[in-house]
Amino acid sequence: MVFRQRTNLWNNFWIYLILFTLVLFFILPMIWLVIAPFSSKASLAVKITLPSLNNFRELFKNKVAMLAFKNSFIISFSSTIIVTITSMLAAYALSRTNFKWRSTLLYALLLFSTVVTGIAAMVPLFVLNLRLGLIDSYLSVIFVFIGGFLPVSIFIIKDFFDAIPKDYEEAAIVAGSTPSQGFFRIILPLSQQGMVVIALYIFMNTWGDFLIPFILLRSVNKYPVSVAIYTFFTQEGLPLLGLLSAYSLLYSLPVIVLYIIINRKFGFGFHGGLKG
């Protein structure tokens, strides 16, 4: 028994040592993001100076940076709302009717959404938007986001709808509702959680995306934050580090807050192998 306890202690020591190393690996690169924005003389180094909010003041004065925030919001919000609504409609239809080519359609959606990534389609997407005259407009980015995120959202929401027995709507219909009253009074309230999850999922993903706006947008005043930060860094570089670190922190904040909300309310887990 003594022997056993000792091995346990020894094992525990190793476990905590490995955990500690892993935590170091994940936390060290983050430190800069927490320190630099509040330092009065920001550099690439992690240096603790007197805390100051100067960088944020600078940032709020910077028109391009603030405009980019607005752009990011416009793009992410519109994509999120349109994807949520259209995928709810489609998922409801797919969940409640049983037509011949339904499973083929679902399979095709799953296949295309896995195969056609932004990377694989960046060239045709650019050409398509060029032909449609959408290059350098919010719409180009929004449309591409919608097309890209719809299949996944449809799958997740369909899961939620499938979990609600048809009996509820039928009971509502027999009790005197029209089918749409049944949807709005019964199904919508019951699938609220799914809607919130899907909306947050899309918002977080579109918020951070870089490639699509980077390819499709030209004018600085339309850039979302991801592209704006990139151009600041590559064009002005070191002199702007203070501002850039503050900008990065502010840019990351919404997703972190949303993550905390999801985690608190629903638990952060898996829905069909996806984050959400």
């Binding site: 027995p165 009996d167 509820y168 039928e170 009971a171 219909i173 027999v174 009790a175 005197g176 509702s177 029209t178």
Partner: peptide, 14 residues
């Protein structure tokens, strides 16, 4: 269905 004025009890109550 809504115009048939029917009172239905489902097997799982719904």
């Amino acid at each position: 269905p809504k115009d048939r004025n029917i009172g239905m009890v489902f097997q799982n109550y719904a």
